[in-house]
């Protein structure tokens, strides 16, 4: 829940900072899309890593 709210806040911040950075209007939406996809991929990579670590530590305990 907090994560979702933070995400929404982040997106709004990104949009207004893109305007403030004078990024071309026509590129803004594409950039937002890329950022969303990057976020999902990073999330996935992070969770895969945690899973791997857990597996290793479990293996040691055995």
């Amino acid at each position: 829940m907090t994560g979702a709210a933070l995400g929404a806040l982040l997106l709004t911040t990104i949009t207004s900072s893109l305007t403030a950075l004078r990024v071309d209007k026509f590129w803004q939406q594409a950039i937002v899309g890329v950022l969303i996809l990057t976020a999902i991929i990073i999330d996935r990579v992070a969770s895969l890593r945690t899973a791997k670590k857990l597996r290793i530590s479990e293996a040691r305990n055995v």
Partner: peptide
Amino acid sequence: KVYGDDNDTKSFQEAQGLMQA
């Protein structure tokens, strides 16, 4: 030149963005 899409909220945000930029 910015575009508020004739949408009140979007126009408001664009105005805000203009002043920042």
